[in-house]
């Protein structure tokens, strides 16, 4: 029994790290621009599909990943300039509808390019499952967890060490104050979308070998990202990571121990319950934490 619990924990953390990356992108964008980016899921789907298509052309897997991440990051930036920037003075309602429009347009675009077929990517490394403490673990899970940790480290290094990163961090902590010390909110908004594109694409690529990739895979993943972000309180980056991991583990245990049909519904039930009971996120229980 404990083997199974360990295995489920591991599966949950693997999935959860993907949710964390998506939630991270959502929270950063939200804190910096006040926009909840409903198109985040499409960044994930297009990232995964692009990487698969690029890899299929014969270039090395690693190069395909980097290229896909860069392309989706550029796409994120272009969308910000094309659709968000012109409406930056509009109300929150207008902006959220714009991102919804972007989301369904991008999903349609992905449908035009990739059709309704499912695509898959081979695992990042060969070899059979690993057995640790009686639990059977998929090597891809290690890749996902490792890459998620690396992505997070790169992000933290960017935010803590570079000038641009510090500006974003300042805008995350307090948008108005950041503006007062001369940080241009338009620039930061642009980079937030570039970063969201890169993070989303990375999340999509990491999960591609585990799940089948389709043009509409982003929708449910984005919902999970929202739930993770809401669990964390939509307010801080640490909360988003924690929320993602928590959601992943809860899903994994409920699917493994109760019913697998419960998995997708669970996230939404958690979303509704958190919104109703603890709308500022569970971290509110531990006292307000910044970043």
């Amino acid at each position: 029994m404990s083997d199974q619990l360990l295995q489920l924990l591991f599966t949950g953390l693997t999935l959860g790290s993907i949710y964390s990356l998506i939630a991270l992108a959502l929270v950063t964008t939200f804190k910096v621009t006040g926009i909840l980016n409903l198109a985040q899921g499409e960044f994930v789907a297009i990232g995964a599909l692009l990487a698969i298509s690029l890899y299929a052309t014969g270039i090395p897997m690693f190069a395909a990943f980097i290229l896909a991440i860069i392309l989706v990051a550029i796409m994120g930036g272009c969308l910000e300039r094309a659709a968000i920037h012109p409406a930056r003075r509009a109300s929150g309602l207008t902006l959220i509808i714009i991102t919804l429009g972007l989301s369904i347009s991008l999903r349609g675009l992905a449908l035009l390019i990739w059709g309704t077929d499912t695509y898959s990517l081979p695992a990042f490394s060969q070899g059979g499952p690993l057995i640790i403490g009686g639990a059977v673990l998929n090597p891809q899970s290690f890749w996902i967890l490792g890459l998620a940790v690396i992505t997070l480290s790169v992000l933290y290094a960017f935010l803590g060490l570079t000038y641009a990163g510090k500006a974003v961090k300042a805008a995350v902590i307090n948008r108005t104050a950041a503006r007062l010390v001369g940080i241009n909110p338009n620039t930061i908004s642009f980079w937030a979308f570039v970063g969201s594109g890169a993070l989303g694409a990375a999340a999509g690529i990491f999960i591609a070998p585990v799940t089948m990739s389709t043009y509409d895979m982003g929708f449910m993943l984005a919902i999970k990202g929202f739930v993770a972000a809401v669990i964390g309180g939509l307010n801080n980056i640490g909360g988003a990571v924690l929320g993602g991991l928590l959601l992943g583990v809860l899903e994994s245990y409920s699917a493994g121990l109760i019913s697998s049909g419960l998995k997708d519904g669970l996230a939404i039930i958690i979303l509704l319950v958190v919104l109703m009971v603890k709308p500022h996120g569970i971290l509110g229980l531990l006292g307000e934490r910044k970043i």
Binding site: A83, P86, I98, L102, L112
Partner: peptide, 15 residues
């Protein structure tokens, strides 16, 4: 496919 058009209309209208 009609949803693409709806999405684009939504974006252009809101802007």
């Amino acid at each position: 496919y009609e949803i693409i058009f709806f999405g684009l209309i939504l974006v252009f209208l809101m802007i």
